[in-house]
Design a protein around this nucleic acid. Sequence first.
DNA 1: CTCCTTTGTCAACGCTTGTTGGCAAACAAC
DNA 2: GTTGTTTGCCAACAAGCGTTGACAAAGGAG
Lengths: 192, 192
Amino acid sequence: MTFTVRSAQTRAAILTAARQRFAADGYDRTTIRAIAADAQIDPSMVIRYFGSKAELYGAVSDVDLEVPDLSGEADAGTRYARNMIDRFEKGDNLAEAILMRAAPTDPSAAARMQAIFASQIVPSLRAAYPDDPDIEQRAALVLSQTVGMVYVRYILKIEPLASMDRDEVADALARSIRRHLTAPLRPAGRRE
Amino acid sequence: MTFTVRSAQTRAAILTAARQRFAADGYDRTTIRAIAADAQIDPSMVIRYFGSKAELYGAVSDVDLEVPDLSGEADAGTRYARNMIDRFEKGDNLAEAILMRAAPTDPSAAARMQAIFASQIVPSLRAAYPDDPDIEQRAALVLSQTVGMVYVRYILKIEPLASMDRDEVADALARSIRRHLTAPLRPAGRRE
DNA sequence: CTCCTTTGTCAACGCTTGTTGGCAAACAAC
DNA sequence: GTTGTTTGCCAACAAGCGTTGACAAAGGAG
């Protein structure tokens, strides 16, 4: 029932190896055997500790974006952008990268991203712009720019975006997100 | 040596089935057997016609974005955005979707996207802004917004972006891209 | 010490995968 | 007609996968 010291260590080793493998190769290409090899244990242990590959994946891809409280923030977009870039630059929070890679082919990962959007991103931005009736649409646009930046810079590694330094990238992301949050959504003279 | 009528038909059937499967499920989850079942032929035929799964994938993911000639275009961003949205809304040009899904886990797909960026997107935008020294960085930002929009609307299908009509989406994308192409890249008062 | 639980290895199962070779049917050339 | 080539199916292979069960070593409790 309780965890002893040894079991906790190998448990952690499995999690670490799994995070790196899933983040680097995606769900399908990652094998239990490879994770076990990285953690220097037997493949069967992975199953004993986590039940199945899918459950291990679930344990490793729980994402908390830790979006800062943006209530009453004058420049919410900038803070949001910086928080995102900081998370990916740190490199040890691999859950987001795992999810980004898995979502295109794994419906459950896609659902998880949808949940993150609805429960973390939208409320946070709504707190900063409580009176904006289009905040959900704006939040989706913010997400699209965020996801695109991650995809191009951190996954595809396309130049010159890949080798710009983090401040430049954070600024560029912040500018675009700020515009999504504040620019008029419809061309003047049109009504919905 | 020459293609007879029958062989050309099954060849086309395989390509069609492969495009749909790859676009829907990604490279790894797509099986030769499933493609063969869709095309109503034997799995071995797929190999005979295309050599291997990887070669079939290659034959199916050649992307030509058909970016219109933007030389001297006053509103290049808008035309670019509309072209992109139109391509994805049509739904029969599946190569882009295939690539988007595969790139996060398949290095060769990622390289292909890099090539598309360098040989199709950058030159096209450069033609519209021949004097902009930062056009490559701007093009990468444009790509990030484009990719993000595709990812969120067409792959994740996150609301409200997923159910907005194509004109609204095209407008939103165009606005963001226009800003990436024309807004100052660095905050005033800083120099590179 | 003995007993029992935990932590680990080993070998193997059942399944799916891409791929191959053999052989029948359809077709074309003569 | 006969011959040769193309197009197709069938059965099977080898490899890799997630997963399971049996069993040994280690550690803690009495």
